[in-house]
């Protein structure tokens, strides 16, 4: 019974995670400029792969796997914003412009 429940939870997590990953990839194509694409990749992509790792943890269920999967998820959640921030900062500093439909830009000096 418990095994069946864990399997169903893992299955739902897999479906949700892979859908997020796919939508993040679609977002890379549909969004207009590098800064908006970063939203898609850094949030939706991270949540997607995090969910897939958690699904693995839920399915296997022994302590060492759960710990390592959780450590991996925490690690991704910590590093994704840092790399997104770094990339956004650098591309702004170097002069990649915002898309034309942008409404405000208070960073412009």
């Amino acid at each position: 019974m418990i095994d069946g429940l864990a399997d169903i939870i893992a299955g739902l997590m897999i479906i949700a995670g892979s859908t997020f990953a796919f939508l993040a990839a679609v977002g890379l194509w549909r969004l207009p400029d590098i800064y908006t694409r970063m939203h898609s990749a850094s949030k939706t992509g991270t949540v997607g792969s995090g969910l897939l790792l958690l699904a693995l943890a839920a399915h296997v269920g022994d302590t060492s796997t759960v710990t390592r999967a959780l450590a991996g998820v925490v690690f991704f959640l910590l590093t994704a914003p840092i790399s997104a921030h770094l990339l956004a900062k650098v591309s702004y500093a170097v002069g990649y412009r915002l898309t034309d439909i942008s409404v405000v830009d208070e960073l412009k000096k």
């Binding site: 939508l23 993040a24 679609v26 977002g27 549909r30 969004l31 207009p32 400029d33 800064y35 908006t36 898609s40 939706t44 702004y92 915002l98 898309t99 439909i101 942008s102 409404v103 405000v104 830009d105 208070e106 960073l107």
Partner: peptide, 14 residues
Amino acid sequence: VVKPNMNLKPGIFA
């Protein structure tokens, strides 16, 4: 991302 008409108003604010 799925929406057919993305009503984006991106920008940078302080």
